[in-house]
């Protein structure tokens, strides 16, 4: 699905990713954990194509294509989805209009006809149920005036609508109470299949009780310093990141 080799990225003069290697196959769930400032969000931003970062070294292959050469919109059209840590409010653009445009631009990219309005609305109805999103929110402006929980549910709703091959959930658990967390996780689990993959980026183990990973990676100072099964997450939760920090202290 995605193969990341020796990925280095910096913002200005500051190198944040210092050689990431990661291989994710279809049907897998990978969790990336790490202390604040370890580069978790940078990794998701670089993969989604945010222009603030410079990739200085390495390569990323996504379904046989060189991901780093694609524009953000083409990455999305190829099936990459980033659930934002901070979903953006866009006053004046309705959720429905936004999603209809997205769905149809993706279809156009794959040489398909626009989705008939009736089918689209039926899909909105079906998928909004998945994350228990009030149908009224669909007609409101994108994320405007949404609560923290609604914003995150809206991200998963969009993911359900766009049906990506690879979903990257960037700190989707931040700011969620336990009920919202459960709803979001249930939504993600229902979308899981043998043909798609998920990367869950999180600071805490909590989310991983609900979205159970096949692999857990610990990111520290821009490198994956430890990988293991789901038990690694529990170990981190119990011991905290201090031990990792001591073990892998890298001189700046």
């Amino acid at each position: 699905m995605i193969s990341i080799k020796n990925l280095h990225a910096s913002i200005g003069d500051k190198e944040i990713l210092r050689g990431i290697n990661l291989e994710v196959k279809a049907g897998e769930v990978h969790a990336i954990m790490g202390p604040n400032g370890s580069g978790k969000s940078t990794l998701s931003s670089v993969l989604a194509g945010r222009e603030d970062y410079d990739v200085t070294e390495g390569e990323v292959t996504f379904n046989g294509k060189n991901l780093l050469e694609l524009s953000p919109e083409d990455r999305a059209r190829e099936g990459l989805f980033l659930a934002f840590q901070y979903p953006v409010e866009i006053p004046g653009v309705s959720n429905v209009n936004f999603l209809r445009t997205a769905v149809n631009e993706i279809r156009k990219y794959h040489g398909q006809e626009e989705m008939p309005a009736k089918d689209f609305l039926a899909l909105v109805k079906e998928k909004s149920k998945l994350v228990e999103l009030d149908a009224k929110l669909a007609s409101r402006s994108v994320n405007e005036g949404f609560s923290g929980g609604e914003k995150k549910r809206n991200e998963i709703f969009q993911m359900a609508m766009l049906n990506p091959k690879l979903a990257i959930l960037d700190e989707t658990d931040s700011g969620l109470d336990i009920d919202a967390l459960r709803i979001v996780a249930t939504g993600v689990n229902k979308l899981k299949s043998k043909d798609n993959a998920t990367i869950v980026i999180t600071h805490y183990q909590r989310l991983l009780d609900y979205i159970v990973p096949d692999f857990v990676h610990i990111l520290y100072k821009g490198r994956i310093v430890k990988s293991g099964g789901k038990e690694l997450a529990l170990e981190m939760e119990a011991k905290g990141y201090d031990e990792i920090k001591k073990e892998f202290e890298i001189a700046d």
């Binding site: 222009e51 953000p72 919109e73 934002f84 979903p87 004046g92 936004f98 631009e105």
Partner: peptide, 29 residues
């Protein structure tokens, strides 16, 4: 708004359509 622009593009909406959506939203009022 470049953040909004990136958000729209990250959902598969092309640069031009994304700008149009944002300008329409601006004028809507």
């Amino acid at each position: 708004d470049t953040e909004a622009l990136f958000y729209l593009k990250a959902r598969g909406i092309g640069e031009e359509s994304a700008r149009k959506l944002l300008l329409q939203a601006f004028a809507q009022e």
